[in-house]
């Protein structure tokens, strides 16, 4: 290993002007001396973290604190009044708050599981591909590149209940006009529709919400595929070949060799996907027109916050719901870190 490092290091060092290297070396020296023996790394850390922490402090943390501060007030503009925790108690006792939270859960579950499975299969197939890898990789990334608005416009046309190609196709197959699904316009539960009414209408996610979930699986898989490919490429080929020689089948190979090896990648994606899914907004807004969908059946937490903040101008209340959402995300992240993080395989 050190040999490899040395050759690389030398290769690079030979190519760059020695001046830069000298400057860096002097800085290193200076920084290490400033830290003394006990806090040797501290000055370097301050230097490296300063830009990020400074920016995140002003444009990340300060807005967050402002939101917390705002959540303690009611009223508007110059007429804001301190209200203590009133906004919080109001949110927690509101039916809409809880139904939005439930929709957020359905959505997170659906998109994360769906996108993971699809991305994993596609990434592992792409990874083994001898020819056309670049082409397919670009093609599968296309949806992620498109802006959500443009992509959603197209989906809305495809899923149009009366003139959309999907339902036109269903008519050809012989579905009668009364039974054509209303897709993004259907507030009834998908379980209710699939079982011909065995479940109550308001059980489970609505068909409209399922359409949003499908859209986001389609739209965000590209992101996951790229990161999973990076993880897969890092696996030593010998390990997989050894498994093949041992006669392991496709499932066994994935379950016992590949998944454990890329579990750090999967773990990272999981944490990120949960945060992103809980903050999803653009696709909801673009697909349903106002984010709330038919009979509010696609309203998730961020849409609920957005509506309160910008449509009804309830700044304090919207901020309070946002803080509650943040708390929910923090709890979920900590739980994952604890319980899923433990199962992650390290070399």
């Amino acid at each position: 290993m050190p040999n490899l490092m040395e050759s690389r290091a030398l290769g690079w060092i030979n190519r760059i002007p020695a001046v830069v290297d000298t400057v860096l070396a002097v800085c290193d020296d200076l920084l290490e001396r400033m830290g003394g023996n006990r806090l040797r790394d501290l000055p370097t850390a301050v230097l490296l973290l300063l830009p990020s922490l400074g920016l995140l402090g002003v444009f990340g943390l300060l807005p967050l604190l402002l939101a917390v501060y705002l959540s303690l007030f009611t009223g508007k503009g110059v007429n804001m009044q301190f209200a203590g925790l009133a906004n919080y108690t109001r949110a927690l006792s509101s039916e809409e708050f809880w139904s939005s939270l439930l929709n957020t859960f359905y959505y997170a579950l659906g998109t994360i599981v769906g996108a993971f499975l699809i991305s994993f299969v596609i990434a592992s197939v792409l990874f083994r591909l001898a020819r056309g890898r670049g082409f397919f990789r670009t093609v599968y990334f296309l949806p992620y590149i498109t802006s959500v608005v443009a992509a959603a416009t197209i989906w809305r046309v495809l899923l149009h209940p009366y003139a959309g190609p999907v339902n036109v196709l269903l008519t050809y197959v012989g579905v009668s006009p009364e039974n054509l699904p209303r897709w993004l316009l259907e507030p009834k539960g998908v379980l209710h529709l699939l079982t011909n009414g065995a479940f109550p209408e308001n059980w489970g996610p609505s068909l409209a919400l399922c359409c949003v979930i499908l859209f986001d699986i389609w739209h965000s898989s590209g992101f996951m595929i790229v990161i999973l490919l990076a993880g897969l490429t890092a696996i030593p080929r010998e390990l997989e070949e050894a498994a093949v020689i041992d006669g392991a089948g496709w499932y066994a190979r994935n379950r016992y060799v590949i998944v454990p090896l890329i579990s750090p990648t999967i773990f990272f994606l999981l944490i990120m996907s949960v945060i992103k899914a809980f903050q999803a907004f653009n696709s909801f807004y673009a697909l349903t027109g106002d984010g709330r969908g038919p009979y509010d059946s696609t309203q998730n937490m961020t849409v609920y916050i957005f509506t309160n903040l910008y449509v009804y101008q309830r700044l304090g209340y919207g901020a309070a719901v946002a803080v509650l959402l943040a708390v929910a995300i923090v709890i979920l992240t900590l739980v994952q870190w604890r319980y899923v993080g433990r199962k992650v395989h390290y070399e």
Binding site: R156, H160, P161, Y162, A163, P177, E178, L184, L185, T288, G289, D290
Partner: peptide
Amino acid sequence: EQLAYHIPPESYDDRDAFAQDR
């Protein structure tokens, strides 16, 4: 009675259907 249907919000499908004599 299936005499009318509703269109997706923020769309103008009624106008389009109208122009096609639907």
